[in-house]
């Protein structure tokens, strides 16, 4: 099983290193044919306007939407969250709409407002996530069928999930935080070997056995 990382620009190598650190094969995705045989896709941080341009130029739109429609897990981080949102608040057209949320770009301000904090995200366990927000977007509207995975203390939503698609505002790949990638790997294992069942997948290599009980909550739907 291998997971693709959209490698047009931005922090893609960090995601690849993180996946490799938990024993998952990762491949760079630059052209449509690179998607052959991947069981999941990570869309990294970067500039969403640049990604929009570059994916359009090389015909990436349909193949990526098709992968999501087949049920492969998709993780969008920061700019990746903007890319997967069904609506962008400043009026731009959506890029790869696959999760029913409205996202606002640069929601915290400019680089001077970038920050780090501890964030509760029960779906990956009781230990808070160390979350790094860089010119980050937020979710302004959560559609029906979309689950909120994490919010800031003031209530602003920064992590969501709808079926196989997860979108987060922050950068686990910059903090060495592997739990979200482990969750994606579990989902990818389920996707690539249907019928094996999630109970088996949860205890496969690459998934920490010592994950707290909360780690399975998000998959109980």
């Amino acid at each position: 099983m291998k997971i693709g990382v959209l490698a047009l620009h931005g922090a893609f190598i960090e995601h690849i290193h993180l996946l490799e650190s938990i024993g998952i094969e990762a491949v760079k995705i630059r052209l449509p044919e690179d998607l052959d045989g991947v069981s999941g896709l990570i869309i990294p941080g970067g500039e969403s306007t640049t990604m929009r341009k570059l994916t359009a130029r090389w015909g990436m739109r349909e193949p990526i939407l098709g992968l999501a429609a087949k049920g492969a897990p998709i993780l969008g981080t920061c700019a990746g969250m903007i890319v997967v949102a069904s609506e962008i608040a400043d009026g731009d057209e959506p890029v790869f709409p696959m999760i029913d949320v409205t996202v606002r770009r640069n929601a915290f301000g400019r680089q001077l407002d970038s920050f780090e904090t501890e964030l509760s995200m029960p779906v990956v366990g009781d230990t808070p996530i160390h979350a790094i927000f860089i010119r980050a977007p937020i979710i302004e509207r959560v559609g029906p069928g979309v689950e909120t995975l994490a919010s800031l203390p003031d209530g602003r939503v920064v992590a969501v999930r709808q079926r196989n698609v997860i979108a987060i505002s922050f950068h686990p790949e910059l903090a060495g935080e592997t739990r979200i990638h482990r969750l994606i790997a579990t989902m990818a294992a389920d996707f690539s070997e249907p019928g094996e069942g999630t109970v088996v997948a949860r205890t496969e290599p690459g998934i920490r056995r010592d994950a707290s009980p909360g780690a399975s909550r998000g998959r109980s739907e």
Binding site: A7, H9, E14, G46, S114, E116, L174
Partner: peptide, 22 residues
């Protein structure tokens, strides 16, 4: 749960988001 701005991780992190670009 305090937020800290302008940390070393956020400073060099923005450059990481620009990689592979012009």
């Amino acid at each position: 749960m305090t937020a800290e701005t302008s940390t070393w991780a956020t400073k060099k992190g923005l450059a990481q988001m620009l990689k592979g670009g012009v």
